[in-house]
């Protein structure tokens, strides 16, 4: 237990880094960490460095696992199952299949064309950006393990229920007909050696860091701002625990935004430190990652408006519900 606690506080929470940055702020900047400016600088440096270290290590490990599950293989695995089992499996595989928003459409086409029910595909599309292995570890680092596990569970449940609902509504007619038109040829999945997988992991680390570094800087910047400069009373008026509309507002603000979960976490962290409900902060985060304007516009190319509206509606309602649920029971997680 002692070893686990040490690993948790030093490797995951990086307390050594916290102390190091405290020294840096005090001796180099000449500021106290409990002053406004000192606090912001500390929050910014500590969070940026921590996120970049964790992200690099995590993406490498996760990419290695992901290299075993290219979408072509996931498609084959899912094809063997039916009903809710398929939805659950799709939600789970969504967490380990490499995914970026620009590949969501070919993936949607590939799954649907192979005869998978669209509900199963949507389970995958909901869980894939929402419940990412890296985000879980970051949640555990910034908050704690209980919150991270609760987040995985609600995320997966949302993906399963969302997908199943879409299946039940029988919306196959609202997919653009060309998706079904010709049977797509099978292509061979290449065999990878350990060296290939390591190479893939390294490439992924570089590619993802290149893609998200700006979002992380902006996210941590906003977090630092909220943390030290925006008065608590102001945040309380908009997003306070006692305001019934806080979750609603946070979700709706988050949906059109396009950012990575890694950029959103520091904002959620700062909001919680300011006394905003955990459910409200997580609802904001889920809104940002699960849905975004660019991904909705992309999906529009393969599904008709009705299905798109139903999809966005189900996910939005789900996130709002989860937000209120966590606000009500969040004290069990802290």
């Amino acid at each position: 237990m002692i070893i686990f606690e040490w690993l948790n506080s030093q490797l995951l929470k990086m307390e050594w880094l916290y102390d190091l940055v405290t020294l840096l702020v005090r001796n180099v900047f000449g500021l106290e960490v409990n002053s406004k400016a000192g606090g912001s600088i500390h929050f910014f440096i500590y969070d940026v460095v921590k996120i970049f270290i964790l992200l690099s290590v995590l993406i490498f490990m996760i990419s290695y696992i992901q290299s075993f599950f290219p979408p072509e293989r996931t498609k084959k695995i899912l094809g063997r199952f039916t009903g809710v089992t398929a939805n659950i499996l799709a939600a789970l595989l969504g967490t380990v299949t490499p995914f970026c928003s620009c590949s969501s459409i070919p993936l949607f086409i590939g799954f649907t064309n192979a005869g998978l029910p669209i509900g199963v595909t949507f389970s995958f599309l909901i869980s894939s950006p929402l419940v990412d292995l890296a985000s879980i570890i970051l949640l555990a680092s910034i908050f704690n393990w209980k919150i991270a596990i609760a987040y995985i569970i609600v995320g997966l449940v949302l993906a399963v229920i969302g997908g199943t609902t879409i299946s039940k509504l029988k919306l196959e007619n609202y997919v653009e007909p060309f998706v079904y038109s010709n049977k797509m040829p099978e292509i061979e999945i290449e065999k990878l050696t350990i060296r290939d997988r390591i190479e893939f992991g390294k490439d992924q680390v570089l590619a993802i860091i290149k893609r998200v570094w700006l979002y992380i800087f902006i996210g941590v910047g906003i977090g630092a701002l909220i943390h030290n400069w925006i008065p608590e009373s102001m945040i309380d008026t908009i997003l306070g625990q006692d305001k019934w509309y806080s979750v609603l507002l946070a979700t709706i603000a988050g949906i059109p935004m396009y950012a990575d979960i890694f950029g959103t976490l520091p904002i959620a962290e700062a909001l919680v430190l300011k006394g905003v409900g955990l459910g409200t902060a997580l609802a904001f985060m889920m809104g940002v990652t699960a849905l975004s304007l660019p991904s909705i516009i992309m999906l529009k190319k393969v599904v008709k408006t009705k299905l798109l509206v139903i999809f966005v509606g189900i996910v939005t309602l789900g996130i709002i519900f989860i937000g209120y649920l966590i606000n009500a029971f969040g004290y069990l997680l802290m």
Binding site: E72, S103, I105, P106, I109, G110, M184, V302
Partner: peptide
């Protein structure tokens, strides 16, 4: 064009 990409059996771009 997605339709053309589909014809090659490609799911990951």
């Amino acid at each position: 064009d997605f339709q053309e990409i589909m014809a090659y059996g490609v799911m990951s771009t």
